[in-house]
Design a protein around this nucleic acid. Structure first.
Lengths: 341, 341
DNA sequence: TATCAACACGAAAACGTTTGCAATTCAGAA
DNA sequence: TTCTGAATTGCAAACGTTTTCGTGTTGATA
């Protein structure tokens, strides 16, 4: 077992001052070529690597970025992380991932433990808890300290920072419009409770699409799911009490569960009922029938968010305008919807 | 914008030495109660937090652990991370996640950039590239430097370190035995190429189960998938050329794809063909019919691995025996298999 | 009054870097 | 031999902590 070698040890070994060693390793031209060669050879031999903690302390930057997400067992967030990792890595940054588990308190604690020097900037998607509580003091504190913050997907207007989102309302509008165009007349909506920003926005898109076609909005055709555990029960109740020929769900899981229930009740998909979900993940592809859904391009969202953050970290002079990037969604047509004639 | 306050600033403001401030904040009894109260009040007011980089440098420990996984868009690894996060957080550690993307080179680079002080220990699951190349020098280097390393799931015998695995062979044996007990006689195997350790082990379990029942192993009933992209093609070829009444797949994705193909060809599941997959994830639950599969308990694996690592980090005296924890798998019966009579 | 412990606080080193500037060396010119 | 300027090299501060050790003050005791 040989611990990592330090500048001091090299310096002693070679009988050269620490500063000369440091400069020689980094190939400063103010050190003679002879010395540079000698030191570099020695460093290579002993596998010298600068201690990143010391470098961080000296340079007042860690080359780490912190990512706070509500859940990781969730295909969409997973693709976002993939995108973040990709650009972070390519620009020399490491990614520290923290999970809020949809809890406000955990989100606050996570941010507090990272803000004290561990990272250079934050990438955050809000927990449900935070959205319900509408308490954003932890975000403001971080911003106050001059630490860059980029929010993605689950964002909030009250905070003035860079953001990356998809146009949820527009995407939902397009999906529901597609259902209408392919012949659906009574469309059920399976969504989340209103405080979840994306749930609310997608609900708005649903309503807009109906309104545009002059179709009245029937409240009984909408179910709002708070606790994912009992979504089956609620969906079954919907089937019990209502008739409809289309379903729009705000995520793929709800859509797939609804499809399974519909099939059990003898409905043919898409002949009797069409289905569209949000988030084009592995479930959509593998469901039977495969599910038409809205691709949110999570990887791209991660890439763009990370790029925004790192650009901000490395910008020379402070730029005070914050911008919001909107990612274009795509409706992926599969077997759960009829063809546009 | 107010940057974080430091000990030095507090010290100047209160006209007390830095060391006294430090001690007062940490409630050392060698500082008078008066001073302690005063300093603590001031610190609280100005929201003082010790700079974690400086603390890390001083204490020679970062309270970060590095996790290297092959892919994150993969339900199993995602559950492992969840488990890791949970215990790491509860014991005051942050988690730095790096993706090898199944590439040997990326795995090496990731480990090298983390080993220089950024973290206290590693949690690693090998990339396919590394397993194919059989080059483990980067792991040995890390161990040589005295940095604790715990491998999970995709491990290798050549490295002497703590490990967490499931008994892949035994689990596959049980799954295939179950198929046999429920009446299957010709069982196809959908696996990966041999250099993927878990693929190989599960294949062994499959063969053992057949041997035990005295059923000959037909090589043509096995397909080994290297590139996940063209798994559909290979599975279709299998259906074209062979007859069978059971399928065992080494992951849930292969199983679900095979089920879809079987259904398209008019087979009834499980009456004509039974299916069992490995990795009990969301796909298994949501497939139609739902897939019987082997739960690997990823969360538990993550928890145990993280616990092993942190225990190792915090142990007083060096303990030289490395241990391998084996996690019990569970066969989750669903609709894709017949009932045991 | 001298001694001593208990108490409160501060100086300084250490962790491993980076970097501006001062100090040293050396060759060549006067 | 002395001087000059360039080429090398080293000193020391700085980043923000923690911690050991030393110092000074106080009050009590002999």
């Amino acid at each position: 077992m040989k611990k990592l070698v330090t500048l001091k040890q090299i310096s002693k070994e070679l009988d050269i001052s620490i500063s000369t060693v440091s400069k020689a390793i980094r190939n400063h031209k103010e050190i003679s070529l002879d010395t540079r060669k000698k030191v570099q050879a020695f460093a290579k031999l002993h596998n010298y690597r600068p201690n990143s903690i010391a470098v961080s302390l000296k340079n007042q930057r860690t080359k780490n970025i912190g990512v706070i997400i509500p859940e990781i067992v969730h295909h969409f967030f997973t693709t976002v992380i993939e995108g973040i990792e990709k650009v972070a890595n390519s620009r020399g940054y490491n990614v520290i991932v923290c999970l809020s588990s949809e809890s406000f308190e955990k989100e606050v604690v996570n941010m507090q433990t990272l803000v004290n020097g561990s990272i250079d900037g934050f990438l955050v998607s809000l927990s449900k808890g935070t959205q319900a509580k509408k308490d954003y003091h932890h975000l403001n504190e971080v911003m106050d300290q001059g630490m860059p913050l980029v929010m993605f997907d689950r964002v909030v207007d009250d905070i003035d920072c860079d953001k990356t989102i998809v146009d949820d309302t527009q995407a939902a509008f397009e999906a529901v419009s597609f259902l209408l165009e392919t012949g659906c007349r009574k469309i059920a909506l399976i969504t989340t409770v209103d405080y979840v920003s994306v749930g609310k926005l997608r609900t708005e898109g649903y309503e807009k699409a109906l309104q545009k076609q002059g179709i009245p909005i029937e409240p009984n055709l909408t179910i709002k799911i708070e606790d994912i555990e009992n979504c089956e029960i609620l969906i079954n109740q919907l089937f019990d009490s209502q008739h409809f020929d289309g379903v729009f769900a705000v995520n793929e899981y709800f859509a797939v569960v609804a499809m399974k229930i519909a099939q059990k009740r003898g409905f043919k998909i898409p002949d009797d009922i069409s289905f569209i979900g949000f988030t084009d993940g592995i479930l959509s592809k593998c469901a039977t029938p495969s599910l038409s859904s809205i691709a949110q391009h999570g990887t791209e969202m991660g890439e763009i968010s990370a790029k925004m953050l790192i650009d901000r970290l490395e910008e020379k002079e402070d730029e005070f305008t914050h911008l919001t990037q909107i990612i274009k969604t795509t409706l992926v047509e599969r077997e759960s919807t009829k063809r546009l004639s």
